[in-house]
Write a protein that binds this DNA or RNA. Structure first.
Lengths: 240, 240
DNA sequence: GAGCGTCTTTGATGGCGCGCAAACGGTTGT
DNA sequence: ACAACCGTTTGCGCGCCATCAAAGACGCTC
């Protein structure tokens, strides 16, 4: 089937169908039920993957049971690349949010691929560079922004990645609990719940059990950009 | 002489002296006074660099004058790699903390180098992977840790990177203001000042104007690891 | 040495958001 | 149907830390 899935992956952009087929032949397909763990942090990093179908998340667990959700993966995304670089252990755990299938390479195979296909290495560098920028963005948010603003930004990011437009609003097709949202934004499930309740009162969202519909995206954007800090009357640039 | 500086750079590891010389020949050396800006965020990303000598920092400025210090570079480190990936603009500004010299390539030159030397690309991937882990670590800190703990960890990181052991303690050879420290840890210069004062009272550090000497590294490590949260018994040594 | 700017300290105040507790409600299993 | 369970909501109190203001300390120039 002409390399199929891989043709849509950012890191294999620019390869010929023949090459894609050869790469695909080296993979092993694995199916995961929802909630199943593909690898755990601390495990020796032996494989790297492309998410073919479904949804997964990369989580880092803290000793106190605290968790940080680092990424929520969409189909086509590459992860576990650590394995190709001769590193020792996965720094995060990967678990399936929905039923998912992944394509896996051994670390050594991917290592050879990167050496043989500089184009793939360059694509991967680009992807990593983008992730670094996203992480810097997150550091910035955590360092300077209030909880409500951080949650708004996280929700908008998720909407961009996994939202479906309906006439009721943008529906987040993710089973996303308050606790997940809290772990994404560095707060507690209590505060996350309060924020969503507040938004629901204002008609901005409709929040259900692990479900979220954005009814007034514009209002969310306002919160995310913190437009309230710049009162419309005053003109910026008046500090002598 | 024989690739000189580049031989000590992580991203050129494994190259022959001849290749290093050829790469070095493509660079342009630039000297920066302390405080001088090499590039500003938003500038079109045309060059990437190795820090040859001195100390630089990568800062992201916020619209409100708030800043996030993203990295403090030591000699041998590569930065501005965005330019090689065909991206548009630098996401951060680079400024010299001390008088520094850098070696610069044009983005296109580095692009060609990466395609021609898969080994360099792989090294760079490794470096980026480490940076991603560091950033994840920082996200984790900002999401879950208290200010004092975050500052302790930042100080220890800086000590590892730019500390010199003396019999008085570990001297941080960086002109590091309270504000810098605050921007590294996502707090305000007021709080940073208070924390350092507190530490000084307890004899953990000796803090001067843009100077810091760690006298009891072990105590700092305890704070950084938050050993107080796991008290097997009550500690008599309490703060009055 | 006087003056000045920058960096730093310290007090006072207030608010955001954490953390516990408890109730609520939808879902699941038998 | 009932109970058990999990995710969610909400009240309440307090502690950490931001924020403002102002004074203090150090290094600089002239």
């Amino acid at each position: 089937m002409s390399g199929g899935v891989l043709a849509r992956c950012a890191i294999f952009e620019g390869l010929s169908p023949g090459e894609l087929d050869r790469l695909l032949a080296q993979t092993q397909r694995e199916t995961l039920e929802r909630g199943q763990v593909l690898f755990s942090q601390g495990d020796p990093a032996r494989h790297c993957y492309i998410l073919e179908r479904g949804r997964m998340r990369l989580v880092q667990l803290h000793s106190d049971g605290r968790a940080v959700v680092h990424r929520i993966l969409a189909p086509g995304e590459f992860f576990g690349g650590i394995a190709a670089l001769g590193e020792e252990a996965y720094p995060v755990s990967a678990e399936a949010v929905d039923e998912s299938t992944v394509l896996g390479w051994s670390g050594e195979a991917m290592h050879r691929i990167l050496l043989a296909h500089p184009l793939v290495a360059l694509n991967l560098l680009r992807v990593q560079a983008r992730r670094i920028r996203e992480l810097q963005e997150r550091v910035n948010e955590l360092a300077w922004m209030r909880v409500e603003q951080r949650i708004a930004r996280a929700v908008l990011r998720l909407a961009r990645q996994a939202g479906r437009r309906t006439e009721e609003g943008i529906v987040l097709e993710l089973s996303l609990s308050r606790e997940d949202l809290a772990n994404l934004t560095g707060t507690t499930l209590y505060t996350a719940s309060r924020v969503l309740s507040h938004w629901e009162q204002r008609g901005i969202v409709r929040a259900g059990r692990q479900r979220l519909v954005i009814r007034l995206p514009h209002a969310l954007v306002e919160i995310a950009e913190d437009l309230s800090l710049i009162p419309d009357k005053e003109q910026p640039g008046e500090v002598p």
